[in-house]
C-alpha cells in the first residue's frame, strides 16, 4: 500500500505491507533509526514519536494509520541549524541519560507532556512519564531534566 506522510517536515511516500507498524516504517523505510524498539507489548515507550504534535508509541500504530499525518521523530526535534531543543539540553545538563536507548522516546514523551502541563510538579512528571521505561537512570535525573526544561521553556 502507498502511504504518504510528513516526517520532520519532509513529505515521504512509500509502498508498504499493510501490517507495517509506524515504527518500522520510520526505521526501515525512511531510515530514521533514532526511534528505537525496546519491547513487543507497547510497554517501554522507546518508540515514542509525535503524531500531529502529540506523543504516540509508534509501535501501537500502523503506518497506514499515519497516512496524511505529521510525524516528528527525535531527529526532527533540534532546530534545522542543529541547536538542541530545550528538553534535549536539559537531559544533557542534568545527566538524564546513560546508555541512551530509551532517551529518544523519553525526550519525545517529555516534550509532549510539557505541552499539556507546562508547570508540572515532580509527582506529575513521574506520572506523566509512566509509559516510558528506563533501566539506567532510576529516573531521578530524568525527572530533574524535565523539571529543568519546564523552567527554561517557561522563561
Amino acid at each position: 500500500m502507498q502511504v504518504t506522510m510528513t516526517v520532520n517536515g519532509q513529505t515521504v511516500s512509500r509502498d508498504v505491507e499493510p501490517r507495517t507498524l509506524l515504527v518500522h516504517f520510520l526505521r526501515d523505510h525512511v531510515g530514521l533509526t533514532g526511534t528505537n524498539v525496546g519491547c513487543d507489548t507497547s510497554s517501554c515507550g522507546a518508540c515514542t514519536v509525535h503524531v500531529n504534535g502529540e506523543s504516540v508509541k509508534s509501535c501501537t500504530m500502523l503506518a497506514v494509520q499515519a497516512d496524511g499525518q505529521e510525524i516528528t521523530t527525535i531527529e526532527g526535534l533540534a532546530s534545522p541549524e542543529g541547536e538542541l531543543h530545550p528538553m534535549q539540553k536539559a537531559f544533557q545538563e542534568n545527566h538524564g541519560l546513560q546508555c541512551g536507548f530509551c532517551t529518544p522516546g523519553m525526550v519525545m514523551a517529555a516534550t509532549s507532556f510539557l505541552k499539556e502541563n507546562p508547570h508540572p510538579t515532580e509527582a506529575e512528571v513521574r506520572l506523566g512519564l509512566e509509559g516510558n521505561l528506563c533501566r539506567c537512570t532510576g529516573y531521578h535525573n530524568i525527572v530533574k531534566s524535565v523539571l529543568a526544561a519546564a523552567e527554561s521553556m517557561g522563561e
Binding site: 533509526t33 533514532g34 532517551t103
Partner: peptide, 21 residues
C-alpha cells in the same frame, strides 16, 4: 563535567546494532 557522549544519543544520531544499514 557534562557527558560528551550525550549529543549523538539525544539526537538519534547514535547507531545501535539494529540501526546499522
Amino acid at each position: 563535567v557534562l557527558r560528551r557522549e550525550d549529543p549523538k544519543l539525544l539526537t538519534g544520531e547514535a547507531k545501535f546494532s539494529d540501526d546499522l544499514d
